[in-house]
Design a protein around this nucleic acid. Structure first.
Lengths: 185, 185
DNA sequence: GCGACCATGTAACATGTTACATGATTTT
DNA sequence: AAAATCATGTAACATGTTACATGGTCGC
């Protein structure tokens, strides 16, 4: 029912990011940390080899660019083939459900009784965590989408940020609903 | 911010399942397919080696049980050490956010305009998918928790099923909110 | 000159998926 | 007798994380 699949999504994300603007592996690494870090993660040790493979496959090319005296950066850009590949991926169906591997949810599964003394502290800890994440996402929304023009220019990003905010908001609400249980810690 | 970490959660889930009742690797495999498939997945090729490692570590033991003429099953059970390890894991904080790697969300990120003709079909496809999942979860809830006694006996499971239902319910609602966009397919 | 950051890689290891492999039991 | 299911494993491969490794640039 849930298939993650070995589908190498990373390559498409890189293509998508390069579709927005030419950039280096370092820039892409930063983008994964800040720009889309809420939705996908990848470290530079995955990104650099993947860039090499994409170039070999003919989906991207690069120009060397010198900074200062001799620091050589590789600025990557999509080829026509890469653009086609990206568009094909986006248009393709996504018929698979996502497996959310949430450790807290898993631990809850093994809590048998509403009177278990561990329940209260666990719920409080998660409320704290998700309330912080909610605040972070709301801050991001204010930052990235200060006006309608920003929304119109990156509508998909706006949608998924809104979705993430609502999801966290619901998560916190659900946690708080049972917060009063076992307040004895 | 999001750390998945190489924490080998599988071992704890196996301990948790064995804590509920002694069973074979085959039974555990089935449990991952049906019982907790909504929350975690693992295939038999992960489970059997992990059982061997847990036994070597002294967290579980097994008795051979003969079925029919000569089919030998290994029925695993927790040791006192395994029980301790399980309890320690549940009590431990879970301070890390879960990275939800949802391919559809990722694709949306690269949709720049509300007028993109791909948007409507994508939203409809996902609505279908998540509405089905929602129905499946609701069916599970009716099946597993037909009365208050069932809830009292597996309270954590009840909580996470409720959470998953509400999450899917919100997901569908959010998708439908933008469903009217680009109805030209 | 020093520290923070820019910039690019590889190595080792852990985890997860798909395929390969075998044989017994039960149901139709 | 055949098909479905029970039952247990290994192998090959893909993905993802942490650590190792190196050197340049920029601001103070």
């Amino acid at each position: 029912m849930f298939t993650i699949g070995q589908r190498n999504r990373l390559q498409y994300i890189i293509l998508g990011l390069l579709g927005q603007q030419d950039q280096t592996g370092y820039d892409l690494t930063k983008a994964f940390e800040h720009e889309i870090g809420e939705f996908w993660q990848a470290s530079h040790s995955q990104i650099y080899p993947q860039l090499q493979r994409l170039e070999t496959a003919g989906d991207i090319t690069h120009q060397d660019q010198i900074t200062g005296e001799k620091l050589t950066k590789k600025v990557y850009q999509l080829t026509a083939q890469g653009q086609k590949k990206l568009a094909a991926w986006v248009s393709e169906p996504s018929p698979e459900l996502t497996a959310t591997k949430d450790e807290f949810i898993l631990k809850l599964y093994f809590i048998k009784s509403a009177n278990d003394p561990r329940l209260g502290p666990m719920l409080r800890e998660q409320t704290q965590l998700h309330a912080e994440q909610l605040a972070h996402l709301q801050e991001r929304q204010r930052e990235v989408f200060p006006n309608q023009a920003a929304i119109d220019a990156a509508f998909g990003h706006y949608l998924i940020l809104e979705h993430a905010i609502e999801r966290e908001s619901h998560y916190v609400e659900w946690l708080q609903r049972y917060q009063t249980l076992s307040n004895n810690h």
